[in-house]
């Protein structure tokens, strides 16, 4: 079996090298070398391990095509499902700081709140149990996600954190309940304050480009709001002054949630504007109509924001629409940050 040299360059131009044989996925080979790259399902379904091939031949296993960006002239791959057939040069959107060594930490956490906050969304709050390495700290970056092991199932589900990194060990998630969802069933019927579960993370490469001076646009579909809320909350805590605009969309008015949190955030972060959008506006709706991408595109066309960094989280279709619009209005690909979170089962 041939072994090939792989070089991987991060968004902050740091290069990592490792060898990979033809029967091994790029993700596994990196892990063997001690590099833990952003990933989640590790079976070609979620898109968390997205990379771009700059050079080299490869074999791609069967994957969920929705996990890859649509269109464009780049060669996107999922590291978990790609096998080299020669030397390869790759780029990832992650910063070098998101590439850790060793396995992803697994910790215990206790449920401290499980609230229905409207729109069939639950706000799940966990407190980490102190461990020998991190103590009570919750050392994630705003925008990252954790996997939760649904109690009694040995099944893991990934959810973005919606709070800012903190030293209380607190993790907050916004989770939409699905009728047949494994975690949904637990949240709806069994999850109780005081119950403990295992969490794995932090993971994920969609974090704030903290070295960028550009305005920030956050585009959220449904509970895709969570990581963007985390980012905006961190901006408020850090006193970041660059202009930022959050476009938050759901289908119907009854699907709305977290509006009080957004009001509180705009008070703490004066540079934040919020536009709430309904796809199916009901009578008397005073906000924007259509998708959050439509609202954002209108502002881009009107020139109210110039060359922003764009952070998007939501269904694959929403992300595709943002990427297409970004291309049309001339925003470089490197300024669009997204993570394709797709159903795990």
């Amino acid at each position: 079996m041939s072994v090939h040299a792989i070089t991987l360059t991060t968004a902050d131009v740091q290069t990592f090298s490792f060898d990979c044989d033809e029967a091994e996925s790029l993700l596994d080979a990196a892990a063997r070398r001690g590099l833990t790259l952003p990933s989640s399902c590790r079976q070609g379904a979620c898109g968390a391990c997205l990379a771009t091939v700059q050079q080299g031949e490869f074999h791609r296993a069967s994957i969920n095509e929705k996990a890859l960006p649509q269109g464009g002239d780049t060669t996107p791959i999922l590291l978990c499902s790609t096998y080299p057939r020669g030397e390869m040069a790759l780029t990832v959107t992650a910063q070098s700081a998101q590439i850790t060594s060793g396995p992803v930490p697994v910790r215990s956490a206790m449920v401290v709140a499980n609230d229905d906050i409207g729109g069939a969304v639950h706000r799940l709050v966990l407190d980490l149990v102190a461990d020998p390495v991190d103590g009570l700290g919750a050392p994630f970056e705003a925008g990252q996600f954790m996997e939760l092991e649904v109690p009694g199932t040995q099944q893991w589900r990934a959810y973005s954190l919606s709070n800012a990194p903190n030293w209380d060990g607190r993790l907050e998630f916004l989770i939409r309940l699905h009728p047949d969802g494994l975690c949904s069933q637990w949240l709806k019927t069994r999850a109780a304050v005081g119950e403990t579960l295992r969490v794995r993370g932090p993971q994920g490469a969609m974090v704030l480009a903290s070295d960028s001076l550009r305005p920030r646009c956050f585009i959220a579909g449904g509970t895709g709001l969570a990581p963007l809320l985390s980012m905006a909350r961190q901006m408020a805590e850090f006193g970041d002054s660059q202009p930022c605009h959050l476009y938050f969309g759901v289908t119907r008015q009854q699907d709305l949630f977290a509006l009080a949190e957004l009001d509180a955030l705009t008070a703490q972060l004066p540079s934040l504007q919020v536009t709430v959008c309904l796809w199916e506006a009901s009578e008397g709706w005073q906000g924007a109509t259509g998708s959050p991408v439509d609202a954002w595109a209108r502002d881009m066309e009107a020139g109210t924001v110039r060359s922003p960094d764009v952070y998007v989280c939501g269904p694959a279709g929403l992300i595709d629409a943002v990427e297409k619009t970004a291309q049309q209005v001339g925003i470089p690909t490197k300024q669009v940050f997204s993570e394709r979170f797709l159903p795990s089962s």
Partner: peptide, 25 residues
């Protein structure tokens, strides 16, 4: 970029972090 910056000797976050972290065993 991305690190917490503290002005005017407002070191409370450092102290909070130290209390949350395990320290030397």
């Amino acid at each position: 970029p991305g690190l917490r910056h503290l002005e005017d000797h407002a070191f409370a976050p450092v102290i909070q972090a130290a209390k949350a972290l395990p320290g030397f065993a």
